[in-house]
Amino acid sequence: MTEAKSTRRVNRGRIFPEIQWTEPQKAQWKAERQAFKQRCELIFAQVQPELLKTHYNWYVAVEPESGEYFLDKDAFIVAQKAHAKYPNVKLQVFRINKTGVCGRI
């Protein structure tokens, strides 16, 4: 008796091909990302002094188009709150401390 060979093909590596970006596309993406970050940082800088007093080490998610922000002790929950009200938009999450950074290296 002979065994039947499996014809199933095993995927090795990525399923989708990598996106090949040109240098101008990369530069445009970085510039858009930097502009978005700056708009969010402006809103965060306005509310940070007051939030430092009441919500130290909490997280704030900023939606720059409306200027609205969301607060919570957990970074994932604050993002969920923001995405519940504004689905399919980009958000920036900051930690409410003197630097605004969520972690350290």
Rank of each mutant, 00 (worst) to 15 (best):
P24G: 02
H83G: 07
G100L: 07
K53N: 14
W21R: 05
A82W: 08
P64C: 02
G103L: 07
H83A: 03
H55N: 15
S66Q: 13
N97L: 12
V101T: 12
E65R: 13
A45W: 02
R95V: 02
A4S: 12
N11A: 12
Q28P: 01
E3A: 12
A45E: 15
K85Q: 14
L91F: 15
R9G: 04
E23L: 05
T99W: 09
R12C: 08
A27E: 15
I96Q: 12
T22G: 03
R39Y: 00
K90L: 02
D72T: 10
W58K: 11
H55D: 11
A82R: 06
R9D: 05
A79H: 08
S6K: 15
E65T: 11
C102F: 07
K98Y: 02
P87Q: 08
H83C: 06
R8T: 15
A84M: 08
T2L: 06
K26I: 01
C102P: 01
I96S: 10
Q92P: 01
Q28R: 12
K5S: 01
G13Q: 11
G100Y: 03
A75Y: 11
V93H: 04
L51G: 07
G67H: 12
I77S: 06
G100E: 07
R9L: 14
E41G: 01
Q80D: 14
Q92E: 14
R39P: 05
G103E: 11
V62A: 02
K26M: 01
R95K: 15
E32K: 12
R104F: 00
A4R: 13
A75N: 06
K30Q: 09
K90T: 07
L91V: 02
H55Q: 12
F36D: 03
S66G: 05
C102T: 15
K53R: 13
F36Q: 00
A82N: 05
H55I: 02
F76E: 13
P17S: 03
F44K: 06
F44I: 10
T22C: 00
A82Y: 08
V60N: 04
R33E: 04
K37E: 09
R12Y: 07
G103I: 02
Q48N: 13
K81T: 03
V89T: 14
V89A: 06
R12S: 08
E32T: 10
A61W: 05
V101N: 09
W58P: 04
E23I: 00
P17F: 09
I19Q: 07
L51E: 07
V60M: 08
V101E: 15
K37H: 06
N11K: 15
R33A: 01
I43Q: 04
G103Q: 12
L71W: 09
I19W: 03
E32F: 09
V60T: 15
A4N: 13
F70C: 09
T2I: 13
W29F: 10
F16D: 10
I43E: 03
E23C: 05
P49H: 02
T22P: 10
P64T: 00
T54C: 02
L71C: 11
A35M: 04
